[in-house]
Amino acid sequence: MNRIEALFTRKKKNILNIYFTAGFPELDAAVSVVTYLDQAGADIVELGIPYSDPLADGPTIQESGTLALKNGMTIDLLFQQVKKIRSQSEIPIVLMGYFNQMLQYGVEDFLDQAASNGADALIMPDLPMDVYKSDYQSMFEERSLGISFLVTPQTSDERIKRAAELSKNSFLYIISKSSITGSASNISQVQIDYFNKLEKLKADTPSLIGFGIHNKETFLTASAHANGAIIGSAFIRHLSKYGFEQDSISSFIDGILK
């Protein structure tokens, strides 16, 4: 059982997953940021692997990635940082990147490094489910690595079921609406109907709602329709504005949870 599965057996509601880009705002920031997030009460951390062409992300995440790459961030450094984090924290860690990054690194090597340094799951938004299933699923499972697939309001029922099944060692990533990351608005009735439908289709796979979650109110609404929610762009904006000292991070998390 990886740390994510362990978490969901222990806690089922109001799970707070925080996304930010590794290498941002400073090259080694991830090590302390993740530790502070853990101490402040976040449940899962998603570390973005900065990418030159992050198609599924909005401008906030892309800019943080550009800066991280400028800072000298690499995939090897990321694995070293995860290892360091593991000497201080047992918070579940999900690595999010694009399939090309894993391909160039070498898929087996990438998975070996991810697993041996202490990551629990991956998110590769542009890795198709059928390619995962035919080429990589057994490699993930041998290493107890989970994977989270994404579903959107346009995803068919049949695909939702498949995505949930393939994500069972991690969580189903529910995209709250049709958008790239970082757009901020409130949750509508149409979205709520969609969340309710998902609840039925996803069977036992835990689910988290992401994209557009940016404050306590949206976090609580989303959490009412899934096991919890993912906050990304809003946290990155906070880091840009208030820095990555412990006070800054705990005040952000307090603002969501308290």
Binding site: Y51, T74, Q101, L103, Q104, Y105
Partner: peptide, 20 residues
């Protein structure tokens, strides 16, 4: 070298880390 750009598996100019 071989990789993925704009949704297609093809040849592209990239770093060893897969940055385009």
């Amino acid at each position: 070298s071989e990789g993925i750009i704009h949704g297609s598996r093809t040849m592209l100019m990239q770093t060893p880390d897969g940055q385009i």
